[in-house]
Design a binder for these strands. Structure first.
Length: 583
RNA sequence: GCGGCGGUAGUCUAGCCUGGAUUAGGACGCCGGCCUGCCACGCCGGAGAUCCCGGGUUCAAAUCCCGGCCGCCGCACCA
C-alpha cells in the first residue's frame, strides 16, 4: 500500500516510531499492552504541551499553586476517596468459556436481586443457590471476586502495608488542602495543580496512546465557597466570558441529540447549564488551551455525562472531546464538580479539620439557649461519687447542646440516667458570631497529556509532495529552529559555512532556543527531516552569508525564505515564535 | 477476558494459500566516500531480519497445526 493510502493513525504511529516520538514499551520482550516509551522528540513535545498547560492553568493565575505528591498511597487514602469501594467491581468468570461478567449487573438482570455492597462470598453463595450459569455457554461460574482497577503494591519490602498507585492526582491535593490553605493565607478560591504520572490497571488497554496503564494527568482541584462562586467568577471572567464553547447537555443527550450547541461561558452560567459557575469558567479556559495547540474550535465539544456515567464523587461532569479521524470523538479532559464530597470524606476518616472559616461582613448576634447543670437538683436524683462523675461529664458538654437535647427530648440522658429540665438553669444568651465554618466545594479540570499529544499530532500531520510536515504550533515544536550550512565540502568556503553555521547554532542555544544543527545529506533532505518533526524555522548559511553576514530563514509551512542579518536573527525568531517558548 | 483479523531489517512491504533452488527479495531510511550554488539530487560502497515467541507435524517450516505475547476491530470493561 502506498504511504498516502494508509490511515492517518498508522502514519502517525510509523512517524512516531521512526523519529523517536513514542513506541510500545518492553519491545524486546514482546511488548506489554498499555505502556508506551517516549523518545527524544516525544518528550520534548510532551513537555511543551505541559508547559503550555501550566501557563494557561497555573502561571497566569495568582490563586493557583502547584504541588507534587507520591504515586504510592497508603490504602486509607483510597478508602476515604471511595475508590476502593467504587473502583472495584464484583466479577464472575465462566470456568468453561472464560467470559467475564460484572456480577452485580448479571445477577440483577437474571435473578432480579440487587447485590450492591455484598461480599464476593455472599455473591458466590447466591450464584450457587440459584444455579446461575454463564448466559453465553451455560458453563459454571468460578467464585466471585472483586476486580480492582487500582494497581496494588506494598509499603515496606516484606509484610508491608497494602498500598495503591494513584489513578488520579486529586487525593494528593485534597489531603494537603488544610496545610496549603494556611500557606496561601486562608483565602478562597484556591486552586491546587498537579502534573505527573498516574496508573490504572485497565482490563484491556487499547487504542495506542488513548488508554494507557501509566500516563500523565494535568489536573487542578479548585476550592471555592459555593455561596460566593457567582460573585467571584464575575471578578475574573473577563478573560473567557465571550469564549464560545460547544456543549451537548445531558438533557439533550437523553433526547438523542448529539449535536452541540454553542454557548459563551457567560451564557453557560446565566442559563444555569452548569451547576456551579466555576465549571463554566474552567471549561472556557480549557477550550482556549486546546485551541492554542492547533485544534480547531469546531472539532472540540463538551459532553455532559449522564447520571450513571458519572464518577461517584461528581455532581456534574463534562467531558471535553476532540474529534479524531481514527477514533471519532475522544475525551481529552474532564471537568467534574466534586462538591465537598472528598473534603468531607477525608475530614471524617482522618479527623483533620477541612473547614474554612468564613468571616461575615458584620458580626451577627444570635440568641442562644443554654442549659447549665443545677447540682442541687441533680443531687436529689443521685449522690456520692456517681454525682461527682456525672457532673464532671456534664461540664464537658456544651451548654447549647445540652439545651438542644432538653428541647428535643425533654430530658438529658447520661450514663443511663435521665435528667429533666428541672436539673438545669436555663438561660438565653446573646452570642456574637464573626463567621461560620464551611466545607469548600471543588471543581476539577483534568487533562490526559498523552491523549492531547495524540490529537495534536493528528491535527498537525500533513503531507506535502509525499513528504511529512508536522505543522506543530511553534511553541510545541521539539526544536524552535534548525541550522544548516548549505555546503559541507572541503572547499575553503564550504568549510567556512560549516564554521559560521555551528557558531550561529551555539549562540542560539546559549540564548535559550532549542536548536538543532544538521549537516548530513543534501540541503533538501535536511529541510525534509526538520519538517517531519515539526521544526518551524530553518536557518541556512550560504555563499551570500560569507559576503554580508545574512542568512536565509525558511518557514516550515510555506517553504518561503527570507534573508535576515545574523545579528538580528534572535529578534526575528522571537517575534515569529512568540514568547510562549520562554516559559 | 471472549470472538475475528493480523505480526517478515528503523519504516513500508514481496514471499505464506499450493512446505524445498531466495544466501528471505524490494523500496525508503541509516552509515562511509565522492559529488553538490537552496527543498528527500546523483554515483560507489556498507551495515541492518530471533521471518513475534514456544511447541508440534515433516526428510524439510517464514509458509501447515497448537499454545502464548503484542496490535487492530466487535462484545464485555473503562471508578
Amino acid at each position: 500500500m502506498s504511504v498516502s493510502g494508509r490511515g492517518l493513525y498508522d502514519k502517525i504511529v510509523d512517524l512516531a516510531k521512526r523519529r523517536g516520538i513514542f513506541w510500545v514499551s518492553f519491545e524486546i520482550y514482546g511488548g506489554v499492552a498499555g505502556f508506551y516509551d517516549f523518545g527524544p522528540i516525544g518528550v520534548l513535545i510532551k513537555r511543551n504541551i505541559m508547559n503550555q498547560w501550566l501557563k494557561y492553568f497555573v502561571y497566569s493565575r495568582e490563586n493557583i499553586i502547584e504541588v507534587e505528591t507520591p504515586i504510592v498511597n497508603p490504602r486509607v487514602v483510597f478508602r476515604a476517596s471511595g475508590h476502593e469501594e467504587h473502583f472495584t467491581d464484583p466479577v464472575l468468570v465462566c470456568s468453561k468459556c472464560g467470559r467475564v461478567y460484572r456480577a452485580d449487573h448479571l445477577i440483577k438482570d437474571v435473578i432480579g436481586v440487587n447485590v450492591e455492597g455484598w461480599s464476593p462470598g455472599e455473591i458466590t453463595k447466591l450464584v450457587r443457590e440459584k444455579g446461575l450459569k454463564c448466559p453465553e455457554c451455560g458453563g459454571e461460574f468460578e467464585s466471585a471476586f472483586n476486580a480492582l482497577l487500582l494497581f496494588t503494591t506494598q509499603i515496606g519490602p516484606y509484610k508491608g502495608e497494602t498500598a495503591y498507585l494513584k489513578p488520579e492526582h486529586a487525593q494528593g491535593m485534597f489531603i494537603n488542602f488544610p496545610h496549603l490553605f494556611k500557606i496561601m493565607r486562608s483565602t478562597l478560591p484556591l486552586g491546587i495543580a498537579q502534573v505527573g504520572r498516574v496508573a490504572r490497571n485497565e482490563i484491556s488497554p487499547r487504542q495506542g496512546l488513548l488508554r494507557l496503564r501509566e500516563f500523565n494527568i494535568m489536573e487542578v482541584e479548585f476550592f471555592f465557597d459555593p455561596a460566593e462562586a457567582e460573585r467571584e467568577v464575575y471578578e475574573v471572567i473577563g478573560e473567557v466570558e465571550d469564549e464560545k464553547v460547544r456543549v451537548v447537555t445531558a438533557e439533550e443527550r437523553i433526547k438523542g441529540v448529539e449535536e452541540p450547541i454553542e454557548y459563551t461561558v457567560k451564557e453557560l452560567i446565566e442559563k444555569r447549564i452548569v451547576k456551579t459557575p466555576w465549571l463554566a469558567y474552567w471549561m472556557g479556559i480549557g477550550n482556549k488551551y486546546v485551541k492554542s495547540m492547533g485544534i480547531p474550535g469546531d472539532k472540540i465539544r463538551f459532553l455532559e455525562k449522564l447520571t450513571h456515567e458519572r464518577a461517584h464523587y461528581s455532581a456534574q461532569t463534562f467531558d471535553q472531546e476532540v474529534y479524531t479521524e481514527r477514533f471519532g470523538w475522544i475525551e481529552v479532559a474532564g471537568y467534574a464538580y466534586r462538591t465537598s464530597y472528598d473534603v468531607e470524606r477525608h475530614a471524617e476518616l482522618s479527623g483533620a479539620d477541612f473547614t474554612v472559616f468564613k468571616r461575615f461582613k458584620e458580626p451577627v448576634v444570635v440568641k442562644e439557649e443554654k442549659a447549665y447543670p443545677n447540682p442541687g437538683e441533680i443531687s436529689k436524683i443521685i449522690s456520692g461519687d456517681k454525682l461527682k462523675e456525672l457532673l464532671q461529664s456534664l461540664y464537658q458538654r456544651k451548654p447549647e447542646e445540652v439545651a438542644r437535647e432538653l428541647r428535643e427530648k425533654g430530658f438529658v440522658e447520661l450514663a443511663g440516667i435521665k435528667l429533666p429540665s428541672s436539673c438545669f438553669y436555663l438561660k438565653t444568651e446573646e452570642v456574637k458570631l464573626h463567621g461560620e465554618k464551611i466545607y469548600p466545594h471543588v471543581v476539577e479540570p483534568s487533562f490526559g497529556l498523552e491523549r492531547l499529544l495524540y490529537v495534536i499530532l493528528e491535527y498537525s500531520y500533513m503531507e506535502r509532495e509525499d513528504k511529512v510536515v508536522l505543522r506543530l504550533p511553534p511553541y510545541l515544536a521539539p526544536y524552535h529552529v534548525a541550522v544548516f550550512p548549505l555546503m559541507t565540502g572541503k572547499k575553503p568556503e564550504h568549510v567556512k559555512m560549516v564554521e559560521v553555521a555551528r557558531s550561529i547554532y551555539r549562540n542560539l542555544v546559549g540564548r535559550g532556543f532549542r536548536a538543532l544543527y544538521d549537516e548530513e545529506g543534501s540541503i533538501g533532505r535536511r529541510y525534509a527531516r526538520s519538517d517531519e518533526i515539526g521544526i518551524p524555522f530553518a536557518v541556512t548559511v550560504d555563499h551570500q552569508t560569507l559576503d554580508d553576514n545574512t542568512v536565509t530563514v525558511r518557514d516550515r509551512d510555506t517553504t518561503m525564505q527570507v534573508r535576515v542579518k545574523i545579528n538580528e536573527l534572535e529578534k526575528y525568531l522571537v517575534e515569529k515564535i512568540g514568547l510562549e517558548f520562554l516559559i
